[in-house]
Amino acid sequence: MTKIKTIADLVKLRDELQSKQALADSADNAESIIQIKIGMGTSGIASGAKDVMDFLIEALEKRNIEAIVSQTGDMGYSYAEPTISVKKPGKSPIIFGYVNVQKADEIIEKYIKRDELVEGVIPVNYHTIDN
């Protein structure tokens, strides 16, 4: 990694990263991919998020579903931990709560494979800095 030496360097890097992300997000792109994030704050981990993450990585590979599984921080829904966010190309991310291994299996089989909704979706209930 070359060091960022000027603000222009930072802007350039940010823009590159953003367009890469946009590419991955868009519906009609060969590089688009399913992105799954697991809420791995302390509360999430305490409720079993790590097992869910391990299961997802293994199950998706076994079932030949190409996806990026990564960790993220606390999503805020302590009452519904573990929580995961699933983003399919071209769609808004959906947050599922109460996700144990069975539930994760159901999410793969129903939502990811067949676009069927499963129970435990947590609706967005906040504004971000941009809206």
Partner: peptide, 17 residues
């Protein structure tokens, strides 16, 4: 919505590592 995420803007969105 009742909530605005300013401090929590990136929490639960990015990979912190």
């Amino acid at each position: 919505y009742k909530q605005i995420r300013i401090v929590l803007n990136n929490c639960g969105v990015i990979d912190p590592e």
